[in-house]
């Protein structure tokens, strides 16, 4: 029994790592360009936005919720920066402060819709928010594409550190991802609020009756998600060099959910961690990068990513069922 269990644990713990390695091996065979250092650094750069968004998404998923407004939120933040840019604001601190305030506030509203207005499920409120923001983003930039941002605000999304000789350097954005992941890991496992997030997701009522303010925990989760979107928005400015409201409907949300679910989070809540989410984000980034290298069209990319999401959710379902079965047998 214990042996079986530990084998199951090892599989579910390292299954995603194995999948990532397999994926890399296959791509390395199919296209020699994949393993080039410059391309690998590119993958890391491409990982950054999704990984940061997935961090916030994970916290929402752990509480048993979801945040569908993440992509629209991040793009709204870029458009706000775009608006300020066109109005002649160039001070990096002002831009960053405005961006963080905007994304965080949107997240706070998402949380309040759930806990104050008591909307039934965050699926509804954040889906509504996604649509609102898709409009707001366009309104902010008057439906025009803004470009020509200064080096300051573009630095995070475009710069690379530790460049030397032929080594292109590690993207600053990915270093930030590592910092955020380490901090989040400590937050989730070593602080009362972090543990409370898991408890609220595992059993909201039991947490409440144990003295945890479930409503505050939930509001915090969505606010944190909004904050992460703001960071992602800043990275987007540097990476693309543009603010384009039309991007608000890009599938950032599904990419982030996929990263979390692949990494072991569950729609039922109470589960998931940063390590898994990191692997999940890398899998998504490697897939997109590999498909681009293989000259697959955007259409094909969508089909593949979509299939991976369904597969990941199916794995989650199977995992839940096996877990339930194990509990049933254990209680006998």
């Amino acid at each position: 029994m214990t042996k079986e269990k530990s084998r199951g644990n090892i599989l579910s713990k390292f299954g995603t790592v194995i999948a990532l390695i397999l994926l890399c091996v296959i791509l390395a065979i199919l296209t020699p360009n994949f393993l080039k250092v410059s391309n690998l650094m590119n993958v890391l750069k491409q990982t950054a936005v999704n990984a940061i968004i997935a961090t916030g998404m994970l916290v929402c998923l752990i509480t048993g919720g979801i945040d569908l407004s993440v992509g629209a939120n991040a793009v709204t933040v870029t458009c706000l920066i775009g608006l300020l840019h066109t109005r002649g604001v160039s001070n990096v601190f002002v831009l960053v402060a405005a961006a963080l305030a905007c994304g965080t506030f949107i997240g706070y509203i998402n949380g309040s819709l759930l806990t104050k207005l008591r909307l039934p499920h965050p699926f509804v409120s954040t889906l509504g928010m996604k649509n609102i923001l898709a409009g707001v983003a366009l309104l902010l930039v008057n439906s025009k594409m803004v470009s020509g941002f200064g080096p300051g605000i573009s630095w995070l999304g475009s710069a690379s550190l530790f460049t030397s000789g032929s080594f292109p350097g590690v993207p600053a954005s990915f270093l930030l991802v590592i910092i955020v992941f380490v901090l989040m890991q400590i937050f989730l496992t070593k602080t009362p609020l972090g543990r409370s997030i898991y408890s609220v997701g595992g059993n909201r009522e039991a947490a409440r009756l144990s003295g945890i303010n479930s409503d505050n925990v939930l509001t915090f989760a969505y606010t944190l998600s909004g904050f992460m979107c703001a960071i992602a928005g800043i990275i987007l400015i540097g990476r693309g060099g543009i603010a384009n409201g039309a991007n608000a409907i890009q599938p950032y949300d599904t990419d982030a959910i996929a990263a979390c679910i692949i990494g072991g989070a569950s729609f039922a809540g109470g589960k998931g961690d940063m390590k898994g989410t990191m692997i999940g984000s890398l899998i998504i980034a490697v897939l997109r990068n590999g498909l681009t290298l293989l000259a697959a069209s955007g259409a094909i990319q969508n089909v593949v990513i979509g299939s991976v999401i369904i597969l990941a959710v199916y794995i989650d379902v199977v995992r839940e069922r096996l877990e339930a079965e194990r509990l049933r047998l254990a209680s006998k």
Partner: peptide, 28 residues
């Protein structure tokens, strides 16, 4: 209402007194 069944015995035992187990209210 009493337990978070999916969590460990440890997590449940400290569920109501998380703050008692912190250093200065910050880290567990």
């Amino acid at each position: 209402q009493g337990l978070v069944l999916g969590q460990s015995v440890k997590s449940n035992l400290i569920l109501s007194s998380l703050r008692e187990f912190t250093e200065g209210g910050l880290f567990l």
